[in-house]
Design a protein around this nucleic acid. Structure first.
Lengths: 195, 195
DNA sequence: TTCTAAACCCTAACCGTTAGTGTTACGGTC
DNA sequence: GACCGTAACACTAACGGTTAGGGTTTAGAA
């Protein structure tokens, strides 16, 4: 009921972080498949059940900041200036996310993800979740009057843009190229006088 | 080396079919999660290892006609009349696929899929594979001059259209609505004189 | 202080999946 | 028609992610 910013929460967060850090370190050292949950638990000095109380699956250990990602996308919609158009705001945010993922230090992690079918599959289903929540944000915007289908469609397209650009040889121009397509799609989705 | 349409191949196909039929029946009777691979194997009167020699995973038992789906999409691109435009051809094929999936008899299967996270996840990664092979077909068309990124983008959008329309309250109009958006996206992706 | 419940631990199991090792029987060869 | 290579299948045992069940500690509320 209270603020509960006490020791308990700090300890819990520390445990979670220790597990995530240990897991990522081991995965990068020995390879994702070569490291078992029991290894992670032992190295982080916690029980296997504790790992699963913090993370829903082995794959979730790798995508620890999943929720950040989702929040930034919805924020780009709900937190933009009044009358600021939707698509450019999303383009800007996706560009930032792609830059973040293709930055120097992130390369080994993404190499590991691309090498593991399980991780790729997990990331795909994550993206679908993100698309759904993005679609909800867009649909909730009172300044926009698009159908449910159009909102969900644009949300998917935006998530596709992120995914495709990240894999492209030259990510930043790819964002621009794909967003030109999205912009065109969005314009025909709106009723005539909603320019 | 020869045609090998002999008894061996027929027996193999029969085994595969028996496994698939048994699995689908049990899944629908008792629920996907309530049926184990060992149950399927026992009921189909084969060894567990035989199941996995025919199907790569438990989920693959449900999406038996996966390859049909992929072939139909690429065929819609590679097999269309000369000068027949790309997007309407794809729209036509997606419409047929959506009709097929939303037909009366298919409802219980899709209800089961929607209810199981594992099956949903599997379907998502299947779709990504289909998008990749569709992108390859589009990129290989000598009559089109789009960038690699544009081809991959349009392929994703088309697969999204299938997925979103299938889930929509009214699937067929949804296909039309989404394909209007795709058409607009495709037009800005082409260089100026490729109308 | 006392009580509650959240966080954690341990054990044992479940289930999908695979490796290792045969066994059968089809299909081509002499 | 006997013979051999091998594809298809069987059996066992295990591996690894995941969960249930039940117990212990401790932060924080009463």
């Amino acid at each position: 009921m209270t603020v509960t910013s006490g020791r308990r929460e700090r300890k819990k967060a520390a445990t979670r972080q220790k597990i995530a850090d240990t897991a990522l370190r081991l995965f990068l050292e020995r390879g994702y498949d070569a490291v078992g949950i029991r290894d992670v638990a032992a190295e982080a000095d916690v029980a296997v059940t504790t790992v699963f109380s913090h993370f829903a699956s082995k794959e979730a250990l790798v995508f620890e900041q999943d929720q950040d990602f989702e929040r930034r996308l919805t924020q780009a919609v709900t937190g933009r200036e009044p009358h600021e158009p939707l698509i450019p705001a999303l383009r800007h945010e996706v560009l930032a996310l792609v830059r973040h993922c293709t930055a120097e230090g992130a390369a080994p992690i993404w190499r590991m993800i691309d090498a593991s079918p399980a991780l790729r599959e997990y990331e795909e289903s994550m993206r679908l979740r993100h698309a759904e929540s993005l679609a909800a944000s867009i649909a909730a915007d009172p300044g926009l009057s698009a159908t449910t289908t159009a909102c969900r469609t644009i949300a998917r397209f935006v998530i596709d843009a992120y995914s495709l650009a990240r894999e492209a040889a030259d990510p930043e121009p790819a964002v621009d190229e794909i967003f030109r397509m999205i912009e065109a799609a969005w314009e025909v989705a709106l009723p005539p006088r909603c320019a």
